[in-house]
Nucleic acid binder design. Sequence first.
DNA 1: ACTATAGCGGAGGTATGCCTCCGGTAACAA
DNA 2: TTGTTACCGGAGGCATACCTCCGCTATAGT
Lengths: 191, 191
Amino acid sequence: MVSEQSRPALQVDVRRPQRADARRNFDALLAAARDAFASKGVDASLEDIARQAGVGIGTLYRNFPNRQDLLNAVYFGEIEELCIAAEKVADLPPWDALTTWLHRFVEYAATKRAIWESLNRETESFKAARAAMYAAGTPLFERAQEAGEARKDVSFDDLLRMVSGLTAAGFVDQAQRDRVLTIALDGVRVR
Amino acid sequence: MVSEQSRPALQVDVRRPQRADARRNFDALLAAARDAFASKGVDASLEDIARQAGVGIGTLYRNFPNRQDLLNAVYFGEIEELCIAAEKVADLPPWDALTTWLHRFVEYAATKRAIWESLNRETESFKAARAAMYAAGTPLFERAQEAGEARKDVSFDDLLRMVSGLTAAGFVDQAQRDRVLTIALDGVRVR
DNA sequence: ACTATAGCGGAGGTATGCCTCCGGTAACAA
DNA sequence: TTGTTACCGGAGGCATACCTCCGCTATAGT
C-alpha cells in the first residue's frame, strides 16, 4: 500500500558506539543475539547472549536497554536485508524472482523463528517492519500472479506465513527443509 | 516399521484416581494442561495450569510428578485419538482418506504446538508416541501414492512435519489456516 | 605520558517458576 | 455417626532470569 520510492527509513535508534572496544562488543552482542533468537526463539536468555558474546550483562543492557531493543536491532537488520534482496531480483522472470526471493528469505533470516513469532505482535515498530517487508515482497508476488504463474486465490500474507512458518520449524536437516518448502510452493503455482 | 495388528499399547502409567473429588481434579488438570500447552507451548507454567484447573499446585504434582508426566498424559491421549481416527478413514478413497485424516489431525490436536515442538525430542516415550502416529498415518499416505494421487518424491515425514508446522503456527484466523493448509497439500498432489 | 571519561562487568535486588513437604479436610465405609 | 485415610493445597526452599547500580579499566585526545 505504501509506495514510496526510496525504502522507508525503518531506522532503529540504537546508535553504534564510538570507542573501538565498545564497537567490538556491540557487534559481538548483535551476532550472539541473532544466533540465540534463531535457535531458541524470542525468549532466549539475555544472560546467555551476553555470555556468548563474551561481555558482561551490564554491557548488554547499556547498548540495548531492554529485550525489545535488542530484538528490534537484530530483526530490523534482517528485514532490511530482505527489502534489498527484493530489489535485486526485480529483473528475473516473475516466478523465479518470487521463489528466489523466498529462498533468500529462508537463507538470510537467521532469526526465522523470531520473525515468525513476531508476525502477530502489535508493537508499533513491528508493524512498521512488517509493512516494509510486505511492501518489498508484494510486487514480486503480484507480478507472478499477473503472469499467470501464481494462484490468484492466495494472498501474499498467506504465502509469507506459510513460508516463514515452515522455515521456522525444525526439520531434520536443511535438505528436508528445502524439499518441503519446494513442495509447499508447488501448491501455490498455477498448474 | 512396527506392524502389530492391535495398536501398540502406548499406555502411560498415570492412573486415574479413585475418589470422586480426586477424579474431578485429575480431569480438570488434564483439560487445563491441554489448553495451556496448546496456547503457550510445552513451557507453559505449571502453576498457571493448576490455577486454571482450580486446584493447588500440590495436587498437580501428586497426579503428575513432573512436567514430563503431565505432558505425556495430554500428548499421548491425543496421539491415541489420531491413531483411532486413521482407522476410521480407511475405507475412503485414497486421497480423501489422507486429507481427511490430516484435517482431523489439525482439529483434534489441541496440543498442536506441543506436538510440533516435541517432534524432535529424543525421549523414549516421545519416540514411542511418534512411532505410533507414523504407524497409523503412513499406510494412508502410501495408499495415496500407489493410487497415483500423491507425489512419490515426498516422504510421510516430510508431509507430517509440513502439516504440523503449518498448523502449529499462528495464523490470523482459522480460515487462513485452512486455506494455507489446502495450498500446501496441493503441492503434494500429483498434477 | 597524562588525564578525563566512555565504557566495562558482575554483585545483588526482585520476580517468577519448579517442586517438596506436611498440617488439615472431607470422602467413603462400617 | 464416626473413624480412617486418601486427598487437598499452599508455604517455602531452590534455581534461574531480568534488570540496576556503581567502583574499576582502558581508550583516545592532548
